[in-house]
Amino acid sequence: MELQLPGIGEWVAAFLTLCAFSFLYKDNILYRFAESVFVGVSFGYYIGLAKINTLEPNLFRPLFGNFGEQWSLIVPFLLGVILYLRYIPKLAWVSNWSLAVYIGYYIGVNLLQRLQGEILPQAKGTMLPLNVGLWPTLCNLVVIIGVVTVLIYFFFSSPHKGVLKPTARIGIYFLMISFGASFGYTVMGRVSLLIGRLTFLVNDWARPLVHGAFGG
């Protein structure tokens, strides 16, 4: 496979990657430089992202290009702009209007998501048959017991006494197994990110450089 010498982009990326890794030794000026660049670029990125992907195609172009049909876009435009009145102390209260619409809408949508998209199907998924052969029945029983006991553990309206105490205890055991699984997956997730960076440094930057310098 022919290896191309790293370009300026790869050099910049490799430098910033190494600056960030230097934090593992201790906090230092190179890390803080890279961190500051990252913070600034992140905020700048969002401005470009919003303008190119949302505000231009969904607001400015239709509103100013076809006002006759799209005049109603003035409403979200105004609601968006008055959000910024919170920086003018005397008019800050007006920004609550658009905040109210924004929060209100998402609250309404969220209610449906939770009820229709989570509580009902998840409860339905727990209503499992118990006469489907020994092994499947056992598996179904594990699910039913797990869901009920975990819910009892999270039921804080009455103290965990009497029959609730051992039941909640079983719930904790289920949670611990699940958290263990989550830990295992978290390790994989974090290592994956490290693999990504090391693969870049080795395969996209160092290896072509070594091949370029020494041949082979």
């Binding site: 998840q122 339905k124 727990t126 997956y185 994989m188």
Partner: peptide
């Protein structure tokens, strides 16, 4: 990977 355990609950509920 971090989110995977949660999605098994959704997958098992079809």
């Amino acid at each position: 990977a971090v989110s995977a355990p949660k999605y098994y609950a959704f997958m098992e509920a079809k």
